[in-house]
Amino acid sequence: MKRVYPDKEYCIGCHLCELACITAHSASKDLIIAYRDERAASGLSPCKRVFEKGDTCVAISCRHCDEPSCVAACISGGLHKDPETGRTVYDRDKCVGCWSCLMACPYGAIRRHPIENKIVKCDLCEGRAEGPACVQACPNAALKYEER
């Protein structure tokens, strides 16, 4: 399956992927409204985070693992592996906010929702015609959406 692969050699730490992510997952699909209003009102936050240490930085999001620890850890059936697409799918309605997946994820790619008892996780921008927003926004091709 196609996944988003970060390249730490060329990640410049601009955080534009995070901004693209919240725009794509916002109600308004407008960066300015999403960043200024929706973040505060509905706790909109990016599924992807840029981690930095020294000169190195890298954008981490759900890797949609072949054998996801988060799915195994999930107590409510809120996370499952889609056998057709291979994606690790999050069902917000089933999620009870126990954070087991957060602790299970070896990449730290799942985050708590800032105000609700839910999680925030990459859905590979499902249904978005241009593919994942973060990849489209990356100015240095440090994110690649491809089969490996």
């Binding site: 050699e9 060329y10 990640c11 410049i12 730490g13 000169d55 240095n140 091709a141 440090a142």
Partner: peptide
């Protein structure tokens, strides 16, 4: 622009593929 620099943080602004 990551051109006339060898600062590791700046020089990676030039991805050789691009």
């Amino acid at each position: 622009w990551g051109i006339a620099t060898n600062d590791p943080k700046l020089s990676k602004r030039q991805n050789p593929d691009i």
